[in-house]
Amino acid sequence: MSLAQTGRRITLLGLVLLAGVYVRALAFTPLERFQGPAQKIFYLHVPAAWSAMLAMGLVGLCSILYLIVKDARFDRFAAASAEVGTTFSLVMLTTGPIWAKPIWGTWWTWDARLTLTLFLFFLFIGYLLLRGAVVEPGLRARYSAVLGICGLVLLPFIHLSVYLFRTLHPQPIVLKPSAPSLPGSMLVTLLVSFAVFTLLYVGFVTQRYALGLLREAQGKEHA
């Protein structure tokens, strides 16, 4: 089985399981009484944010490894992860405002967490544009590795922004030093969604990596 086929199968499994997450979240997870149904956006928004940050984390790590060992596989994986991360960032940046409007009364506010996540999205876009703009493969890999490392440096600031600044965005309820502050059934739904989004990330990135290989073989890798 080729890499692309493996990626397709993982993606297909991820999409089927995502449908299961929808059913569990919408039909079998209790309503939060203060926020109402809009709170259920949480089960998509938070895992999408996790996948976007996972993607950027791996872009950064692969960028460091590329600069150390100059192995093109790291550069290829970073490129794949950046494109997939852009997709998950888009989910995060669309579901966030849709959740914010009924709860905060506004679609968007320029507080630290929201601004930094928007910056993360722009970093993904910039990374992809940079790869498209530089033709020489060695230069392209080196320039984009530097940008990838900048993205990695941004991640702790995004996570800690809710502690460091006054912000409307809630503080973490799972990824924090103390125990998760969420009722059991909601926590299970969230953890299942985390697993499914991670699986989708793996499926997407495997396919995108295979696409990178294919383009290199055809001599037209520019992204």
Partner: peptide
């Protein structure tokens, strides 16, 4: 309980469209 189910439905649809759209895009390109 607030009546804001429309926002929830919109978010779930938008997520499905983005993820399915990207899956189709990858399928077609590979």
């Amino acid at each position: 309980v607030p009546q804001n189910g429309g926002y929830m439905v919109a978010a779930y649809i938008v997520t499905a469209v983005i993820l399915l759209g990207y899956a189709v895009s990858l399928y077609r390109r590979t």
